[in-house]
Amino acid sequence: MTETVAQITNRRVVHLAGEIDLEHAPQVRKVLLGAVEEGRMILVDMAEVEYIDSSGIACLIEALQKARAISADLALIAVNPQAMRVLALARLDTVFAIHNDLTSAVQAAS
């Protein structure tokens, strides 16, 4: 599991990669909550997520709830088919804003 955070003004792009599971959830949680504290718009790039379990999804939900509480936006971008299947199965596609890429996410926000 790897993660990086890119900063552009108030926007934070968090790149997640690999297996986002119980073992890596504490690290993912820290990175996501850190990004929510720093940015007004948090985009989570999930193109390279090979596997995400409920612990990983809970991290995304906690970050989303925290973002909403401070009127910030959190969206998922470039969600690959495997991760999308998990999100769609649980109808979490109705909870998260999901965009194809960074450009469309930024356009949607503006």
Binding site: L89, A90, R91, L92, T94, V95
Partner: peptide
């Protein structure tokens, strides 16, 4: 609510699954 679709196995219709219609 957000759960893996349960499956109904009928003797003549095979397996039918029922997707969630709300998040968890």
């Amino acid at each position: 609510a957000g759960h893996e679709p349960p499956m109904l196995r009928s003797p003549d219709r095979g397996y039918e699954s029922f997707s969630a219609d709300a998040p968890p």
